[in-house]
Design a binder for these strands. Structure first.
Length: 810
RNA sequence: GCGGGGGUGGCGGAAUGGCAGACGCGCUGGUCUCAGAAGCCAGUGACGCAAGUCAUGAGGGUUCAAGUCCCUCCUCCCGCACCA
């Protein structure tokens, strides 16, 4: 007999909804637990990635609920964004109609999976009562100088026809459509995330329960590097060129300077020099190259001599100033000191253009004492170098610093330079400000007004929200669609009441998702983005679950917003997400499931044929949550088979106390409880299977079965509710208490001791668990099976590991 | 180049330094059946009739004992990258 999953799942989903079993209520007598999964973009259907993400979260939420926590487990929709716009163009529909339809569809599917969301807290970022607070936050940032408009060279996706943040450029392509990103000079809105760079870096230390690689990626992205800014005076001039280096220990080997072609001093340096024409040609050529082309030419180092010279401030040597494409304007000062002997890029450039080289760091001798022939050949010479020596060593040709290790010299030279006022210890960062303007329709309007008289004027708070007009002529071509909506654009200036125009760009959707987790604490609050009391109770998120693709983007922005709210005095914590789990992808035949590959398995068809509980069970059992999961149709069958096997137990329940079975039950309770705590669902399920097998061996005991159902409930909720009810229980199984194990029952009365001779297992012996060591030794030595291995040889060593093994050396 | 994570049966995957391969899939055999499916029971790393030997990417080391700790190397995946 197989279990009626279809009726059962529908029945319980209805009951859960009607009885509000999963409504989050702040309760003073219970500890709180806020479990959040990254909310989806409403594309219509849910895919296996969603199923996996949300199943992991659902098990954790239900487990915590049974443990007696007051659980907040909300769901919503990240509803603004381009796909809605593109779909609307294609279907001649409207983004809001399309989006709402998709949300309804997705909700139906999420409900079919039986997820324990408190739907009364649902939020959609495209609703005015949500994005109003985006605008509010933006204005607060503007007030504090954290939102500003600036003309600059920005990333442009030619296919999406909009700008992109640095974080949205993946492998030189658009994160969404993969089109090659171009560079454009535009005036755009930025958020000053760099103001928070120290805290964003420092507080990574607080995130003890985040995956290391996410921490590493953020660390990398923020990119702090400690070094020295050195001032190189121009020869015969009082002007200086500042240069940033992390290798100040190599300063005595700096034999030329290289500027980025865009550097502001370049024009003056080449003026009237013999090579001026050639230089200008080179600069024009590089200017035409995209970042992509420029970044890919990693072997050939092109450049020209400016005709001017600078002076190395540490040894007063006159050194030439060059321009080259391998120096980037965006990093450091846009100028470098070149040390060809100790930097591979400089080395290649110097070889190409026959520039001077000077060794200033000698690899440390392998050993002390008079140098051997080997050690002498170890000495570097500029003439013989085949590549730059970038390792550590001892200073030479470095005046008073000779003989120091280069690590020590780094500090000494930096201090000395500061004293001599020829340099300054400095920190440089890779992190750039966050570009948030998008030339698209389906997003939050940026609440700014341009007045000819008053300049940039923020929309007053009482005028929020600036509503997105329902109709806009978006064709996917040519500029911001909102610019074409006259009623939207033309406004009165809030200051002078004169004619003015609205900003027509919308906000990047990552703005929307950078604070939604706070909104869930009080989704209907209408005086502020969130209610401070509610946020104080529920926040921070105890467990966050989502894909690794947001390791930088969303997670970095959310951390930034959280710190900003703290500075506003709205919250008192630094980090939004206590624990983070990044689930692995779902693969089919070794590849990511995707439409273009045609290898998609539709969750809906699995639910139809096997039920949601089977799907949940399979997806948790097939792999640990963090690793990739290979889809397996036969694995689904296996999961279904297991549920049926459990189902059949109820047919002949008895009350019989089998001590072995009882012990197996307590063991399972312990194992499953511990595994759930660490999200090791695959091994938890394995132990439930073992308990099931034990029941089959021993006979179906009522109490053991009841506990099995309780342990399985978070994974297969409908299935277990059904059996819970069949056992005669009233109320939802999720209002029942999580079973506890009794350590007393875990104690075994006999144990198997493994006997090893010279490190090899020879035989096993069953003994009472409480046997003393002498007795055990005696027993083993008198065992017939030992003789062939020992014969008459003396036993040199005898080791006993209690309850496990005995090992002897002969 | 820098940073992070891997490499264990036919497959997915287990193993606080203590019996490698839990659990499942697949496969084989048995049972039930007119037959099949579904159940249920048993077997299943390789070699060997067996005793046993060999097996966790390769090689070395520490240890009574290593998938696990240490060194050298190979290889795969992910992120960043002319970042000075």
């Amino acid at each position: 007999m197989s279990y009626p999953f279809k009726q059962s799942e529908e029945k319980w989903q209805k009951i859960w909804q009607e009885k509000e079993v999963f409504k989050a209520l702040p309760k003073q007598d219970k500890p709180k637990y806020y479990l959040l999964e990254m909310f989806p973009y409403p594309s219509g259907k849910i895919h296996m990635g969603h199923v996996r993400n949300y199943t992991i979260g659902d098990v954790a939420a239900r487990f915590k609920m049974m443990q007696g926590y007051s659980v907040l487990h909300p769901m919503g929709f990240d509803a603004f964004g381009q796909p809605a716009e593109n779909a609307a163009i294609k279907n001649k529909s409207k983004p809001d109609i399309w989006t709402h339809k998709c949300i309804e569809w997705m909700k139906t599917e999420l409900k079919k999976m039986g997820f324990s969301y408190d739907w009364s807290r649902e939020v959609s970022t495209c609703e005015a009562d949500y994005y109003k607070w985006n605008q509010w936050i933006f204005l607060k940032m503007f007030e504090r100088g954290l939102a500003y408009k600036k003309a600059s060279n920005v990333n442009w996706c030619p296919s999406c026809e909009t700008t992109l943040a640095n974080e949205e450029v993946i492998d030189e392509g658009c994160w969404r459509c993969h089109a090659k990103v171009e560079q454009k000079d535009l005036e755009q809105w930025f958020l000053k995330i760099t103001e928070y760079k120290e805290r964003l870096l420092e507080d990574l230390n607080q995130l003890k329960d985040w995956p290391e690689r996410v921490i590493a990626m953020q660390n990398n992205w923020i990119g702090r590097s400690q070094g020295v800014e050195i001032y190189f005076p121009l020869d015969n001039s009082d002007k200086i060129i500042p240069v940033f280096t992390t290798r100040v220990d190599t300063i005595f080997g700096a034999t030329y300077i290289v500027l980025a072609p865009e550097h502001s001093m370049v024009k003056d340096l080449i003026k009237g020099k013999p090579g001026e024409k050639e230089s200008l040609k080179f600069i024009a050529k590089v200017a035409k190259e995209s970042k992509v082309v420029r970044g890919s030419s990693d072997v050939k180092k092109e450049g020209v001599f400016t005709g001017s010279y600078a002076v190395n401030p540490v040894n007063k040597e006159k050194i030439p100033i060059w321009i080259a494409d391998y120096v980037l304007m965006e990093y450091g000062t846009g100028a470098i000191m070149a040390v060809p002997t100790h930097d591979q890029r400089d080395f290649l450039f110097a070889k190409e253009h026959k520039l001077t080289m000077k060794v200033v760091i000698q690899p440390s001798l392998p050993q002390a004492g008079p140098p051997s022939a080997e050690a002498i050949s170890y000495q570097l010479s500029a003439e013989e170098l085949k590549e730059a020596y970038e390792g550590d060593g001892v200073q030479i040709n470095s005046a008073q610093f000779d003989g120091l290790t280069n690590e020590a010299a780094k500090i000494k030279i930096a201090e000395w330079m500061e004293k001599e006022k020829i340099g300054k210890i400095q920190t440089h960062w890779r992190l750039r400000d966050w570009l948030i303007s998008r030339q698209r329709y389906w997003g939050t309007p940026i609440p700014m007004i341009y007045c000819k008289k008053c300049g940039i004027v923020p929309v007053p708070y009482e005028d929020l929200p600036v509503e997105l007009p329902k109709d806009a002529p978006f064709t996917g071509e040519g500029g911001s669609p909102l610019a074409k909506v006259k009623e939207f654009v033309h406004v009165k200036c809030p200051k002078c009441k004169g004619a003015a125009q609205r900003e027509t760009d919308t906000m990047a959707t990552f703005f929307d998702s950078a604070w939604y987790f706070l909104r869930f604490s009080s989704p209907r609050e209408n005086q502020a983005p969130f209610n401070q009391e509610e946020a104080k109770y529920w926040m921070p998120v105890d467990q966050y679950i989502g894909g690794i693709e947001h390791a930088i983007l969303h997670l970095l922005y959310s951390r930034f917003f959280t710190k900003f709210f703290k500075d506003l005095g709205l919250i008192s914590f630094d980090e939004p997400f206590q624990r983070l789990l990044t689930q692995g992808m779902v693969l089919k035949d070794g590849e990511v499931m995707s439409k273009s590959r045609g290898n998609i398995v539709d969750p809906d068809s699995i639910i139809k044929n096997y039920g949601a509980d089977t799907l949940r069970l399979f997806i948790l059992f097939a792999a640990p949550p963090e690793t990739e999961l290979e889809w397996d149709d036969r694995g689904i069958e296996g999961a279904h088979k297991f549920l049926n096997r459990v189902w059949r137990i109820q047919e002949n329940l008895k009350d019989k106390a089998d001590p072995a079975l009882n012990r197996a039950m307590h063991k399972a309770i312990k194992k499953v409880s511990e595994d759930f705590e660490e999200f090791k669902f695959n091994t938890a399920i394995a132990s439930l299977m073992e308990l099931t097998n034990a029941i089959y061996q021993s006979g179906a005991d009522r109490k053991v079965f009841k506990n099995l159902i309780l342990l399985l409930a978070p994974i297969a909720p409908h299935f277990c509710e059904e059996l819970w009810e069949a056992l005669g229980n009233k109320g939802s199984i999720f209002q029942a208490a999580w079973p506890k194990y009794d350590p007393a029952f875990l104690v075994e009365d006999t144990v198997t001791i493994v006997v090893q001779v010279n490190g090899k297992v020879r035989f096993k012996i069953d003994v009472p668990a409480d046997i003393n060591q002498d007795k055990l030794k005696e027993l083993i030595l008198s065992d017939e099976r030992l003789k062939p291995w020992v014969q008459d040889q003396p036993i040199k060593k005898f080791i006993i590991v209690p309850k496990k093994l005995a090992s002897m050396v002969i």
